[in-house]
Design a protein around this nucleic acid. Sequence first.
DNA 1: GGTATAATTAGACAAATGGCTAATTATCTA
DNA 2: TAGATAATTAGCCATTTGTCTAATTATACC
Lengths: 97, 97
Amino acid sequence: MDAAFKALADPTRRRVLRLLNRGEMTAGQIAEQFQISAPSMSHHFNVLKQADLISARREGQQIFYSLNTTVFQDVVAALLDLFPQEEAPSLQARSDA
Amino acid sequence: MDAAFKALADPTRRRVLRLLNRGEMTAGQIAEQFQISAPSMSHHFNVLKQADLISARREGQQIFYSLNTTVFQDVVAALLDLFPQEEAPSLQARSDA
DNA sequence: GGTATAATTAGACAAATGGCTAATTATCTA
DNA sequence: TAGATAATTAGCCATTTGTCTAATTATACC
């Protein structure tokens, strides 16, 4: 959980997650959206993977990344836990997460 | 928004938010829950304040901190935006946040 | 086998982060 | 005014973070 919050702290990584929102993408497809070297992107993928926010799958030379939505649920639950529930009546998703 | 995610990356700060969940507390009351020097705690309060996650109010010698729940709504909304909505049917709070 | 391509790992380095002690500010009370 | 208390700001230091280039691994194709 700690790793997930740390992973979300970086804007580049949040943008990666937003891209993967629409479906899986290869490392190269993701990287070409950024002005950052491939090794640096690879590092970001690793941080997201360590936090269990994304999964990797190799197909030939390429590696496809995709979101791990289950862990996302946990993060939202943890975030909700930080704030009073009565102040967020329309977001009372604790029982689901 | 970037500041809020960065602020949430630190476990000490998340614990501060959890404490404030139950209502406002003075800097001293919060600090005595931690094994960290007062200046370091003050630094954390500052980060949370810069991120607009908490507010400060002076009363005599003491400073009372409390949560800013509106900004919290924004953070949850931003978080939801990172992940596919159809995977989180019970958390579709976008229209509210 | 040899070469090209996709992506990673290794290692270096500047900037940011989180901790500390010492000093300062603000307020209260005798 | 002087002294005590609550909290902050200032400044220092070790660790972590995000970036890079160079080298390596894995696969594909000729």
